[in-house]
Design a protein around this nucleic acid. Structure first.
Lengths: 218, 218
DNA sequence: GTCTATACTTCGATAGAC
DNA sequence: GTCTATCGAAGTATAGAC
């Protein structure tokens, strides 16, 4: 009966088990307040359990954090890559798709970029530690991107550009607004809806600007 | 004599007084580890003093942080604005100057963007609190930018664009690399020097891409 | 102004009952 | 698996001597 009460507002698949409730709370709080800005008591309260359970499931705050961080990194990196490398559709369309799909992900997870990059900034060894697990995959991606760009260059579709610069041209424009959001919202008196409009409006600009720069014809 | 030892490696103007030593330590640590990742003991050690002195000069860790945060915000915002609004030189040159001068500032203060934006992200009220002091000035800037852009548009120099989108086109490209630095350095095996080369290389790309998009002729 | 010593608070983690 | 109670460590801040 207590159990029934607890389950009323949960969809059984995810929120019925404690571990998932804790993970969800951790995602929310860590990505909003950061590792050191979040206490295990905050986490327990947000998850609707007590502190002892956090350590029961995850051994320590540190381990819980690492688990969440790794999940978030995967979430971001695994998306988009396939889009960008898919040679079956024209380069131009891939760029558009990438902008579309990445923006959509970020609108659904607005704290994701700041979470990953600020924690990486505050603890440089974190990146190394977490990325090592997925090392092969990521090095692979850069190489594949490099060869894809070379191919398009040799076909005469785009100008010569490194994967590094290409990634930055794309990602800086897409990601940055989400990191600067508090500043933007303050300076322009934005609410969440105005911000989202702004992001949508931005997609067209980004696409046009990037293609104008990269494509050799048109 | 103890005093002499302490002063050997200091240039009298700044580092001879304790308050400035503490401020310097605070800038270093807060911008590297964040507010909650830095303890007053860390600060005291870095400054070469003891904890009591921090509270003697700044009353509390919080107050010290606010003081530093405000200084960093000013440091960033006050630069570049005059460059961008200076109607005496052509629009195109202003863009180039802005990229040049802002990149130089960030290379000298690589943690600055992540410091400001991550703290703003973790504590939304922080922006409001600190910005209110400089409120009039900032609102002013957006307005001036808006009218500058309108003017250039009416002269037929550039396409129509809002100050908000204009700022993002410029700043996202310039600032983002410094926020993503740990990730980039890991993925590409970069040291600090390689990273700086990358940033310098980027200036040309940014300039060309932005002008290609904004300018109506050429 | 600067130090040592210490009071007070909060945090992370665990023991032990259920 | 879940709770209450509690311990030891670490954090912020201050009192008081010099």
């Amino acid at each position: 009966m207590t159990k029934v009460d607890k389950q009323i507002h949960q969809n059984a698949s995810d929120m019925d088990n404690t571990e998932e409730k804790i993970r969800q709370a951790a995602k929310n709080l860590f990505s909003e307040k950061g590792l050191h800005g979040t206490t295990i008591r905050d986490l327990a309260t947000e998850a609707g359990v007590n502190v002892a359970l956090l350590n029961y499931y995850f051994r320590s705050k540190e381990k819980l954090f690492l688990s969440i961080f790794e999940e978030m990194v995967s979430k971001y990196f695994e998306l988009g890559v396939s889009t960008l490398l898919n040679r079956e559709i024209p380069f131009e369309d891939r760029i558009e798709q990438y902008i579309e799909v990445t923006t959509a992900l970020l609108l659904e997870n607005q704290n994701l970029p700041m979470f990953i990059l600020s924690e990486a900034h505050h603890d440089k060894e974190l990146v190394e530690g977490v990325m090592k697990i997925k090392n092969i995959k990521f090095k692979n991606i850069v190489e594949k991107e490099e060869s894809m760009l070379k191919e398009e260059y040799e076909k005469g579709v785009i100008r010569k550009i490194s994967a590094l610069q290409f990634d930055h041209i794309l990602n800086s424009q897409i990601i940055f607004p989400f990191m600067a959001k508090p500043m933007v919202c303050y300076l322009h008196g934005f609410e969440d809806t105005s911000f989202e409009e702004f992001v949508h409006e931005r997609k067209k600009i980004i696409k046009e600007m990037i293609l104008k720069y990269l494509l050799l014809e048109g």
